[in-house]
């Protein structure tokens, strides 16, 4: 029987789906709670391999928790999906942007600054409206539209008062005039397995499914596929969700997610996403 592990800190819809699908596929999938696991760095790799198997699906909802655990598992020569390097890049919007730019992938204009004063200058440089995002975090949390100088000053001032050093890193992007939707492409290895539109819920401009956004199937064109695969490759590849916007200068990639949430996509796609990811994990094990 094929053995895989899944590390988690909260069992959500996707993790349940993996467990169910693994049973159907005859995979011995062991779910390990990161919250109670003691990372003994001295432990013999053999012991770790017996517990985790050769391949681990990293599903911790806490980015930094997942990152540390991945570093540990990789140090014991366990294959983690996704790798530390990929998770580190995708868990930080600025690092993602750098990789996208390096790979010549169209992405919104972005300025990073380190103080509230320079953040306001960055907004003025990009023009209004602009968007302020935290470099880490998801689900559109703390993503703010800066519509004019007054609102920019207030929002930046509020950010300045938030604790945590990452809150004093100001990642500012041009606001993209787009339809009230974005495109999410789910990549598994070398393949774009499904794509959806995510429509912003009524009363919000953010399209995150976690915020009540609605999914609709998106036809995969050659252009979309090429761009999504290039973006996935730019961050190091694996199981990824590439998020894109339709703009008047073509499709722009604005984010690549490493711990893919696919409940919205699964509600409209004919592809069994959990099955595709498990098959990929098995393939990686045999490598």
């Amino acid at each position: 029987m094929v053995k895989l592990s899944l590390v988690y800190d909260r069992i959500g819809w996707e993790e349940k789906r993996f467990e169910l699908k693994a049973r159907e596929m005859g995979i011995d999938l062991q779910s390990i709670d990161a919250k109670t696991y003691l990372v003994d760095v001295q432990i013999e790799p053999k012991v770790i391999h017996e517990k985790f198997g050769e391949v681990v699906l990293q599903r911790c909802i806490s980015h930094f928790r997942g990152l540390h655990l991945t570093a540990f598992l990789e140090s014991k020569d366990i294959k983690v999906i996704n790798s530390y390097k990929v998770a580190e890049i995708c868990g930080n919007k600025f690092l993602t942007t750098l990789q996208l730019i390096k790979a010549n992938i169209p992405t919104p204009k972005t300025i990073l600054s380190f103080t509230a004063d320079s953040a306001l200058n960055a907004v003025e440089y990009l023009g209004y409206p602009a968007v302020l995002k935290p470099v880490t975090g998801s689900w559109g949390r703390l993503v703010a539209q800066l519509k004019d100088r007054d609102s920019a000053m207030s929002i930046i001032e509020a950010r300045e008062l938030l604790n945590g050093p990452l809150n004093q890193i100001y990642y500012i992007q041009e606001y993209i005039q787009r339809p009230p939707r974005d495109i999410r492409c789910i990549i598994v290895g070398e393949e774009l397995i499904t794509a959806i539109y995510r429509y912003a819920p009524i009363g919000d401009w953010r399209t995150n499914i976690a915020r009540g956004g609605k999914a609709e199937l998106c036809q995969i064109t050659k252009e979309l596929e090429d761009l999504a695969l290039r973006a996935a490759k730019a961050v190091g590849g694996g199981v990824l969700a590439v998020d894109m916007m339709e703009s008047n200068r073509g499709i722009l990639v604005h984010e690549v997610n490493s711990r893919v949430e696919f409940r919205g996509a699964a509600s409209v796609s004919n592809v069994d996403i959990a099955e595709a990811i498990l098959n990929y994990a098995i393939k990686e094990q045999k490598r």
């Binding site: 800190d9 909260r10 919250k35 909802i61 806490s62 980015h63 930094f64 928790r65 868990g91 935290p134 880490t136 975090g137 998801s138 689900w139 949390r141 945590g164 990452l166 976690a210 969700a241 997610n257 490493s258 711990r259 893919v260 949430e261």
Partner: peptide, 25 residues
């Protein structure tokens, strides 16, 4: 609440963690 144990038709619960700043995809 987080379900910490399921056994013979009963579950044990504990308060779930609060959403962290680094939570997400």
């Amino acid at each position: 609440f987080e379900v910490v144990e399921v056994s013979s038709g009963k579950v044990e619960l504990k308060a779930a963690e609060m959403v962290g700043e680094d939570w997400g995809e």
